[in-house]
Design a protein around this nucleic acid. Structure first.
Lengths: 366, 366
DNA sequence: CTGAAAGCGCTTACAG
DNA sequence: CTGAAAGCGCTTACAG
């Protein structure tokens, strides 16, 4: 039988109250008593019962984490970031999953029925988050990570996709490229449009009007899409891929064309995911700080759960919510939570596929 | 304030005991009473407090899941499999993570200190599981998923790697290949040796002695490794890659050699992971049933936690523990747990990279 | 079929 | 600084 505070109390010759006090590092304990209790606890291998503690205190120390249907490789980094924060707060992560065939109502039902978690972190792809939002409406704090299906009145954290789009495009412009293509993926998500917007902005900033002919759409076959590009009279000299996965496809396909990267075609991606295998040439890409994204989301949630929570960084200065009053301390006012959107900055990882390494340009990034 | 059984009892005009009975579907309740209680519960939106239930019953309903350091893409499938089982058992998954820089002692400490879980599922790569095993020694049921660092006295589930190695090799032999290379990856794990063993077995079965010159080792550069192969006087006509990731590298590198797959070189992989991008040609590979692996591991653990648990499948017939008595019901005897090893069967996914599609051979698999 | 009471392992005012 | 008592929200013999 595992010892309880009652056992420790009896063995030490004090009351349960006192044992409880040393357990909670209460100051009102005689140092000598404290030490005696601690010795007995160590001897007995005493571990307090978390459940009983939480029940007595009327608190919940679990937060839910909903994994997306298909786990991208960078999910690992996000999870590590989330875990690093949650761990330090003395809470635990309860895992929820969905399948592509069920919607989130399934998860919502479970969360409500078990009534274990005090907040929820959700990361997902294409599915509509409506069901999740109903959780928030029931009073469960919710933070959404990366890629919402639409602009929502739910706190969420992502990367500054537009700035990333600009960064990539500006870099290619600086390398001398004038005809830069943009490739949209098959799945239509707002983040890709933001990246495209950044691309357009950078072009206009450089005095170039975006050419609709250079905007490519993957309709299921990247190969076909690039073949059309290849058939163009005025071919692009560079291509900005809306994400890395797609960029690696481009790399492989274009090589089959007999083109050399970056000489015949420069390529820049978005994500900075670990390549499926040592790609040649190494991909220049916009780096998403996935670990930090996870940390930020976790700290947002913890702040919502406990106003006294002190985040490791002032994420709120990265907020882009229009409703937010800059001078106030928004995170202490519950009313401002629902519309909070934090965008982390991105950086450019310059490698070989853009041609910067053998161009006259020496500056690493924008 | 959320209503408690006390509130429900008062509003219905019964005792807490009775409310508790309808909550637990006890038979000793008057149907009319039951209905009245249920109506009040619905009206009040009553949800029982899981923590209190567990405390009162003296049970734990959490199982720990330790994610590997680097999350492979198929981790998602394993997780789905685990979750599908755990969900149905009315338990929850608590997530634990490690970083490449810390060993498992960190997780072990946390598990002990929080004392929340009743069992642990661990999936990992190369790290030594010694610290985890100390959890088992402390009485915490532990099941290890896929790829242990060594043969262990811990229940674990994997795939039949040797049979997979045979399957792949037999297929290539049937297609007429005589010189089949085997490529070892940079990370040295027992499963790769098992696959190699299967490769050797299949060759010998066909009357061929494995040629050491055809056993390739990736010492950090697959490319260099394949260049050596290319320089061989008697080149292999087929290559069996110890895992898919590596196979996709081979595909890319060999294409750069100007070789066509499968005509100049047939390739077979192992894993059946979702390709990094639509690979051409599609990879023939040994399929690991990751979802089932997750389910099996979860059901093993649940059986250890509760002897009355009825698994959805008789996984135990796939056991390969030498200590196991075939005629007995081993899963009800605690003593047999520690050495239990279950190997799920694999299948061959025949696609284009092996050449079966344009060979005279019509049979899909072995 | 139902209720009063004790209990799960802890916390927390309240007295002293 | 310490203890007795009531309580967190539930369960479970024990009587009736």
């Amino acid at each position: 039988m595992k010892p309880t505070i009652r056992d420790i109390a009896r063995l030490t010759g004090v009351s349960k109250s006192t044992v409880s006090r040393v357990l909670n590092n209460s100051t009102n304990v005689d140092p000598a008593t404290r030490e005696r209790v601690q010795r007995v606890m160590a001897e007995q291998g005493f571990v307090p019962d978390r459940m009983a503690m939480q029940l007595a205190r009327g608190e919940k120390r679990f937060i839910g984490m909903l994994l997306p249907t298909l786990t991208w490789s960078f999910m690992a980094d996000i999870l590590q970031g989330v875990a690093s924060i949650v761990e330090m707060s003395g809470r635990e992560i309860i895992l929820y999953t969905t399948t592509p065939f069920k919607d989130f109502s399934h998860v919502v039902d479970r969360v409500i029925a078990t009534n274990l978690i005090s907040g929820m972190l959700a990361s997902f792809h294409t599915q509509s988050p409506q069901h999740l939002i109903s959780l928030q409406q029931r009073g469960l704090p919710l933070v959404i990570i990366n890629m919402p299906a639409a602009r929502l009145s739910v706190p969420w954290v992502s990367v500054d996709n537009r700035a990333g789009g600009m960064l990539a495009t500006q870099h290619l412009l600086k390398l001398g490229h004038k005809r830069i293509a943009f490739l949209f993926p098959a799945t239509d998500l707002p983040c890709f449009h933001d990246r495209y917007e950044g691309y357009c902005l950078a072009l206009r900033e450089a005095g170039l009007e975006p050419d609709p002919a250079l905007v490519l759409y993957d309709d299921g076959s990247v190969s076909k899409c690039l073949q059309e590009m290849r058939a163009m009279s005025e071919k692009p000299t560079a291509i900005f891929s809306s994400h890395d996965h797609l960029a690696y496809s481009i790399l492989a396909i274009v090589e089959r064309f007999g083109w050399r990267v970056p000489d015949d075609l420069a390529i820049v991606g978005f994500d900075d995911m670990i390549p499926p295998f040592p790609a040649q040439p190494a991909l220049t890409t916009v780096r998403q700080p996935f670990y930090e994204i996870g940390q930020c989301a976790a700290e947002m949630l913890l702040s919502m759960l406990d106003p006294r929570y002190a985040p490791s960084r002032n994420w709120w200065e990265l907020s882009v919510s229009p409703a937010l009053d800059q001078s106030a301390t928004p995170h202490h006012d519950e009313q401002t939570w629902p519309s909070l959107h934090i965008q982390l900055p991105v950086t450019l990882s310059v490698r070989d596929s853009c041609g910067a390494s053998h161009s006259t340009l020496n500056q690493p990034a924008g």
